[in-house]
Amino acid sequence: MFLGMQGTDGLLFKLLIYGLLIGIGFVYLYPLLYMGVYSFKSLDDLLNPLVNWIPTQFYTGNYEQANKVMDFFSTLMETLYVTVLPALAQTAVAAVVGYGLARFDFKGKKIIFVLVLATFIIPPQVTLIPRYIFFNELNILGSLSAFLLPATFGQGLNSAIFILIFYQFFRAVPKALEEAAQLDGAGHFRIFFTIALPMALPAIIISFLFSFVWYWNETYLAAIYFGDALTTLPLQLQKFVATYQKMFPAEMGVSGGNQLNEGIKMAGTVLSILPLLIVYFITQRWFVEGVDRSGITGE
């Protein structure tokens, strides 16, 4: 009963596994719980040492101020514009490149494969200055083209990972299907669009979602390439304190007043990650299936 026997798990083993899972889950959920609770705390609750996890009232003033500071809905539309288009372009190009490397033999194929891997191995900080100078000469700084153009040519954020995912996935597709289509008179483009792509749906989902999240969370390159022309929610979160102090200057001699507190900071943080959480909850089934069936495992 405690140690298990004949292929059955004992009580001791189950307690160990569930205890480990609960501990890991708590480590991941604690920051979210902390942000959620403190974002609904009023200033009185924050100053009251007796109020810990359960606020005395459902206070939404923190979100009202954070919404004004971040200009949430306008910034959200701009963030989607900056992330969705490059993610779509990167996924489409990675699918084409991965299919070409997996299905065709040509001179220089190994060299191209090595170059793809090199773009993933070389730290992006090494190529930052040359790329910035190049983009400046092309006059695309301050526009979406700074993200969209590299993604279109297979040089987006971590594009090598997605190319390898599609490469591994297309290698697992039986060649008999393509040979049968060729006997029916189908060309390479028709085979790619009617046979390969529908079977690569898990790889498409996982590539797009990962690409979407990485473009969403990218603040370093976005700040350098876009400047003040474009902004995103993570960039607004970085400037949250400075923007708040400009919009709500603290009144002299007034205790509390418009001073920035932890509840408002947590509300701004929740607003910045809320769209990603909604996207994950909507797509979690396809996301998990994509990870399980994509070319990462070759199954």
Rank of each mutant, 00 (worst) to 15 (best):
I121W: 05
R293S: 03
T56F: 03
S211M: 03
F135R: 04
L76T: 06
I165Y: 00
V116T: 07
L144N: 06
I191C: 13
D45C: 06
I163H: 01
I22N: 02
V27A: 09
D105C: 04
A94Q: 06
K109W: 08
A151K: 12
I122F: 09
R171D: 01
A160T: 07
L32F: 02
M266N: 14
N158T: 01
L15N: 08
E262F: 12
T60G: 15
L50C: 05
L43A: 15
I121R: 00
R131H: 04
N52L: 15
L117E: 06
A250W: 08
S74I: 07
G100H: 08
G257A: 13
Q284R: 05
S294A: 11
G4Y: 04
I195H: 11
L16H: 12
P55V: 05
M199V: 14
F240P: 01
A87Q: 00
F147A: 07
L138D: 04
Q238A: 13
Q284S: 08
I24K: 01
T269P: 00
Y34G: 08
F169C: 13
R285M: 02
G25F: 05
F120N: 07
N136V: 11
G23F: 11
A172K: 08
S39A: 12
L277S: 12
F153W: 10
I296Q: 03
I278Q: 00
E178H: 07
G268K: 13
F162H: 01
V254T: 14
P124G: 09
G185V: 15
Q238V: 07
G4N: 03
I163Q: 02
M70C: 12
L33V: 11
M70W: 06
Y244H: 11
A95F: 02
I140M: 12
V27S: 14
A87M: 05
R190I: 11
F208C: 13
L157I: 15
F166D: 02
L230I: 13
F26M: 02
L197I: 15
Q57P: 00
F135C: 15
I121G: 09
W286P: 03
I22S: 09
N217I: 04
V69E: 03
F162V: 01
L141F: 11
L138E: 14
T219W: 07
F104M: 06
Q6I: 12
L271A: 11
T8K: 09
I163V: 14
Q182C: 08
H188Q: 00
L197P: 05
L46R: 04
F208G: 10
S294P: 02
L177D: 05
I205G: 10
P198W: 00
F73P: 03
Q284C: 11
G263K: 08
V288L: 11
I191M: 14
L115E: 00
L201H: 14
L88E: 10
Q155T: 09
P86R: 01
A250M: 09
I17T: 15
P150G: 06
F212W: 00
P31M: 06
S145T: 13
S42G: 15
Y132P: 14
T56D: 11
G36W: 10
L12M: 10
F13T: 15
T119M: 08
G256K: 09
Y215L: 05
A66T: 02
I163L: 04
K265P: 00
M70N: 03
G227A: 12
M70G: 03
N52H: 13
I296F: 14
L101R: 08
F240C: 07
Y28E: 03
F72L: 02
V96I: 15
L43W: 00
I282A: 07
L138H: 12
A176M: 07
T79Q: 09
V51I: 15
H188K: 10
